[in-house]
């Protein structure tokens, strides 16, 4: 099936198999491998991307469902060589170790801060509960989101 999407601001069209998952489309067809597959069941959040402004788990969305959509992946956050404040927060606060959950975690944080620019700690912990991290114990991730919140609302 033919689909047209805008990925990280770039308009593109492709012919894809109807059963192809959005995450595989992004990784294999578009060639953006920053979005990861952690569980294929929408439970870990490693595959989170922004689809028309909402964070979705791209392992349980079909590529054809994204026809006409605007998609932002981890590769689309930094602008003109400047890290997004959330990325900066993850770096400053040691919000990652192995880095595998990180792109999805950053997308989840992005959604959280759009909805609630000044979340308290409990808001952040609840806001990222759809994303699993096995390395950090989450505390430095919470710090990273707080860092970004401060910077983005200054």
């Amino acid at each position: 099936m033919k689909i047209e999407v805008t990925v990280n601001g770039e308009h593109q069209s492709y012919d894809v198999e109807p059963r192809m998952l959005l995450v595989h489309f992004l990784r294999e067809v578009v060639g953006l491998t920053g979005t990861h597959v952690g569980c294929e069941t929408s439970l870990c959040g490693a595959c989170s991307v922004m689809l028309n402004g909402d964070a979705v788990k791209s392992c349980t969305v079909l590529a054809v469902q994204a026809d006409g959509a605007e998609i932002t992946t981890i590769e689309g956050l930094a602008q003109n060589g400047e890290l997004h404040p959330i990325q900066e927060g993850f770096w400053e606060c040691h919000g990652l170790q192995c880095g595998f959950c990180t792109p999805g975690m950053i997308i989840a944080a992005h959604q959280l801060l759009e909805r609630n620019p000044k979340p308290n700690e409990a808001d952040i912990r609840r806001g990222i509960e759809g994303n699993l991290c096995r390395c950090t114990g989450y505390q430095h991730i919470v710090d990273a989101v707080q860092y970004a919140s401060k910077k983005m609302t200054r």
Binding site: R27, L32, T33, G34, T35, H36, V37, T73, I74, E75, L77, A78, L83, Q87, F90, W91, E92, H94, L96, G99, F100, T102, P103, I106
Partner: peptide, 19 residues
């Protein structure tokens, strides 16, 4: 000191096996 490995990891520029 903040980690030197992080810039590639936070921008989706790292290469795991599946990449």
């Amino acid at each position: 000191i903040k980690r030197r490995e992080d810039p590639r990891l936070i921008q989706g520029l790292a290469h795991y096996v599946d990449d």
